[in-house]
Simulated assay, not measured.
Amino acid sequence: MDVGQLFSVRDKVVVVTGGSRGIGEMIARGFVAAGARVYISSRSVEACQALAGELSDTGSCIALPADLSTTEGVKQLAGQLAEREDRIHVLVNNAGATWGAPLDEYPESGYDKVMDLNVRSVFLLTQALAPRLRAAASPQDPARVINIGSIDGGFHVPTFESYAYSASKAAVHQLSRHLAKFLARDHVTVNAIAPGLFPSKMTKVIMAHEEEVAAAIPLGRVGQPEDMAGIAIYLASRAGAYTTGAVIPVDGGHATLA
């Protein structure tokens, strides 16, 4: 057994949505460093192009900006990928949003925004790229779909009034299982990662109290980029080829042990 090959993702074509910052950036950096050809997408053209330019100095990273909260944005990204690649080995559905407000003030527009980006776009983009995932797949080396959920999506009840976010991530977990069941026959695995607390724009308010929050996490710290890149690379490599339909918490034991 060649352990180096066991965890290799070299030369795989990887798509990371929401890839210009936060957890998406962590995953994209990991795949680029591991030798994959990585496409990153985000709504911000400037942020997407800036990160792709930086990562291209050490590997292969291409920016394809798109607003995946809309059907048109999903079609745009799928079309751009179709022009460039016949096969896609790994799709990381990471693009997401949150909205917090008291129940009596929670806006319908905010609820719809979160659900559209966090759930609807995951389904639509997976559907649109399914032919290229199938083309890259084989029994020994399946194509992979990795959806980014959250420990808020069923591992615990969130502290904050972020109703749409927790509901959307619970939906992502179940959607991942459902897709896994029916894509298995095409040699495509589907798994979800459920992160705990990682530094990002979305967690900026919480991270202002990092020491206090870290004290409540069994492993005593918040997540680091290597933690997120590591689980994604595992799922995309030969090491993760027999894992499908799983929802994997990566939270230092925060929700699962505390």
Rank of each mutant, 00 (worst) to 15 (best):
G4S: 01
R10K: 15
G18W: 02
G18H: 00
S20R: 02
I23T: 04
M26N: 08
A33E: 14
A36Q: 00
V38D: 10
Y39L: 10
Y39I: 09
I40N: 00
V45E: 11
Q49W: 03
A50H: 14
G53C: 03
E54M: 04
G59V: 10
A66P: 12
A66V: 06
D67L: 10
T71C: 14
T71V: 15
T71P: 14
G73M: 01
V74T: 03
V74L: 07
K75H: 15
Q76K: 13
G79A: 12
G79I: 15
Q80A: 15
L81F: 09
L81M: 13
A82M: 03
E83V: 15
R84V: 10
D86R: 10
H89I: 00
L91A: 08
V92L: 08
N94W: 02
T98C: 15
A101L: 08
L103Q: 10
D104A: 15
P107N: 10
E108W: 12
Y111S: 09
D112A: 11
V114A: 01
M115D: 07
V119E: 02
T126P: 06
Q127V: 12
A130P: 13
L133V: 04
R134Y: 11
A135K: 01
A136P: 05
A137H: 06
Q140F: 10
D141R: 13
R144L: 05
R144D: 00
N147A: 08
N147M: 06
I151R: 07
G154A: 02
T159H: 14
T159G: 15
A164P: 03
Y165D: 02
S166Q: 03
K169M: 03
A171R: 04
H173W: 13
Q174L: 06
S176K: 06
R185G: 05
D186Q: 13
D186H: 15
V188N: 07
T189I: 12
V190N: 06
L197M: 11
F198T: 01
K201H: 12
M202F: 13
T203I: 05
A215S: 14
A215Y: 15
I217S: 11
P218Y: 02
G220R: 13
Q224E: 14
G230A: 00
I231E: 10
A232G: 06
A232H: 05
I233D: 03
H254D: 09
T256Y: 07
A258G: 14
